[in-house]
């Protein structure tokens, strides 16, 4: 089934479907404008959206005439690493930023600076990321992991694209 337009979102409150089929997309797939994937119910969805369109959790991809049967996109986000940098002295902050940037770049991890913190998506495995961070033994830099759904609401489209887009 070719889907070229989003019909609405479950949060609109306008939907009272009797049957809901779900297309599950991970954080990487959710950034795509073009995608082919099966729903839980086995419907082959071919998504072809405008470059400006961005999928949101609960987007209605298809609905029958009365809106009784619908297909909904469910976005499943993984974790994000939040890194805090020291800010007291300018030299220390600069050193920490360069050291962190060097380490992140060395791993080819995407990153975004937001609200004074550095955000890095967990690409494969949180344990691996954690041990990479600890092995650097940075001074004044701390990190923790939070669910991606906690940060997605605060991110501009280009930030989400930077973190999870295919580049």
């Amino acid at each position: 089934m070719l889907v070229e337009q989003i019909r609405g979102n479950l949060a609109d409150g306008a939907w009272r479907p009797a049957n809901t089929d779900v297309l599950r997309l991970d954080q990487w797939e959710a950034q795509k404008r073009r995608l082919r994937k099966l729903t839980d119910g086995g419907v082959d969805i071919a998504l072809s959206l405008d470059r400006g369109t961005r999928l949101r959790d609960g987007d209605v991809l298809w609905a029958d005439e009365g809106g009784d049967s619908i297909i909904v996109a469910r976005l499943e986000f993984g974790e994000v690493m939040l890194v805090d940098l020291p800010r007291r002295d300018a030299d220390g902050a600069l050193r920490a930023a360069v050291e962190l940037g060097h380490a992140i770049g060395d791993q080819h991890w995407p990153a975004v600076v937001k609200g004074g913190q550095v955000l890095v998506p967990v690409t494969l495995d949180r344990e691996v990321m954690d041990s990479v961070m600890r092995s650097h033994a940075f001074t004044g830099i701390s990190h923790r992991f939070v669910p991606g759904t906690d940060v997605i609401a605060y991110l501009a489209p280009q930030d989400a694209d930077r973190l999870w887009g295919t580049r």
Binding site: K32, R33, R34, L35, G165, T166, R167
Partner: peptide
């Protein structure tokens, strides 16, 4: 279709 070596894309 655009084929992009090492670039951002819809399909990789």
């Amino acid at each position: 279709v655009v084929l992009i070596e090492n670039g951002a894309a819809d399909f990789v």
